[in-house]
């Protein structure tokens, strides 16, 4: 802000004010819609295969089902991705790795649980070595099936996109400024 003619104008913390304004603007109607539209078409799942449903996940990204047309592009580094697909059973050993990967991903981030095992154990419900993903991760969409067909995975992507565009999942809040 510019100084007045006589003395100073009280503006407070300029950076904090700018941040507040940005959050207000990003959550305001037309901008929010554009933001959610953009997020919904750039869902990049991280290349993290937890169990055998990965075979069908690979088929989803392959030519016949071509999930890239939804902006769904599997990518290697977890820091560049915003979607974690739990593909099938999550064992105790793998759950630790899944949490690590999830924590490394930047906000906003989403989780899809694929397969009956990721819902409630599926055929391995009485195994001594499995974890229910919803106990440790905030899952947005579940895909039933053992294994789910690639069409089902595509439908889950579309469902997630719809949820994002309704504004249910992405919320920007004011962050503390670290000096």
């Amino acid at each position: 802000m510019v100084c007045g003619l006589k003395g100073m104008m009280w503006v407070g913390n300029l950076e904090k004010a700018a941040r507040k304004a940005a959050v207000w603007l990003v959550n305001k109607r037309p901008i929010r819609d554009i933001r959610d539209w953009g997020i919904s078409f750039s869902l990049w799942p991280v290349h993290f295969t937890t169990a055998c449903c990965g075979a069908e996940f690979a088929a989803t990204s392959a030519p016949k089902y071509d999930a890239e047309r939804f902006g769904f592009l599997p990518f290697v580094a977890s820091r560049q991705c915003n979607l974690l697909l739990i593909e099938g059973t999550l064992t105790k050993k793998m759950a630790k790795a899944a949490l690590w990967v999830y924590e490394q991903m930047p906000e906003p981030k989403f989780v899809i649980a694929m397969g009956a095992c990721a819902i409630d154990g599926g055929i391995f419900w009485n195994s001594y070595n499995i974890v229910r993903p919803m106990d440790i991760l905030p899952v947005s969409v579940f895909i039933p099936g053992c294994p789910p067909r690639p069409e089902a995975v595509a439908q889950a992507i579309i469902m997630l996109q719809k949820k994002i565009r309704k504004g249910e999942l992405v919320k920007y809040e004011e962050m503390e400024v670290v000096k």
Binding site: A51, C52, T89, T91, K93, A97, N126, N129
Partner: peptide, 14 residues
């Protein structure tokens, strides 16, 4: 190894 050990052999016994 062991990231996908789901105890198939043990489950088969029941």
């Amino acid at each position: 190894l062991g990231y996908v050990h789901r105890s198939v052999e043990k489950i088969a016994e029941v």
